[in-house]
């Protein structure tokens, strides 16, 4: 399909250490960015055997949650401007969150401003229900997404 890698030489960052949350049985256990980050940081990059965390596509700060309104906003940064994999990464995020969070959360997924050449079209594509559903019915895309989500290569 592709004739070579889009970003052949990505910068790989160290994984951050996972801090175990302190056991606080009476504390406020509301959904927070770290919880979401813990779910998505290990998604594999479609091109490389590294996690999105390692490639610095995602960070804890790039996730915001509003539990009262039930909204999650994730902004991710593709490794290069013209990355055609941005939509695939977004699709992976969407699929994973759909499975791991109750349906009343509305999930918005965006590329961070200025990080992609076709920022607007990518954002539109990722937040359009119909187009997401259509994409997931495409067996090739579906397989790619599944590989990223359940890969053991990391």
């Amino acid at each position: 399909m592709t004739l070579g890698l889009i970003n052949a030489n990505p910068v790989v960052h160290a994984k951050k250490e996972r801090v175990a949350r302190t056991e606080d049985l009476h504390g406020d256990d509301a959904v927070d960015p770290l919880e979401i980050y813990d779910f998505v940081r290990d998604i594999r990059d479609p091109e490389h055997p590294y996690s999105l965390e390692q490639l610095s596509v995602l960070s804890e700060e790039s996730i915001t949650v509003d539990e009262k309104l039930g909204r999650i906003l994730i902004t991710f940064t593709p490794t290069i401007q013209h990355c055609s994999m941005a939509t695939v990464i977004g699709l992976c995020l969407r699929v994973k969150l759909k499975h791991y969070f109750p349906p009343h959360f509305k999930v918005d997924i965006k590329v961070s401003p200025g990080s992609h050449a076709n920022e607007e079209s990518v954002n539109k594509q990722l937040n359009d229900k119909e187009r997401v559903a259509a994409a997931l019915e495409n067996p090739n895309l579906r397989q790619l997404v599944d590989e990223c989500l359940y890969s053991n290569e990391l």
Binding site: R21, D29, E35, Y100, F101, P102, P103
Partner: peptide, 11 residues
């Protein structure tokens, strides 16, 4: 289990 995804407790 879907309902439990919305549980008030993180664990």
């Amino acid at each position: 289990v879907q309902k439990a995804l919305d549980d008030p407790k993180r664990a």
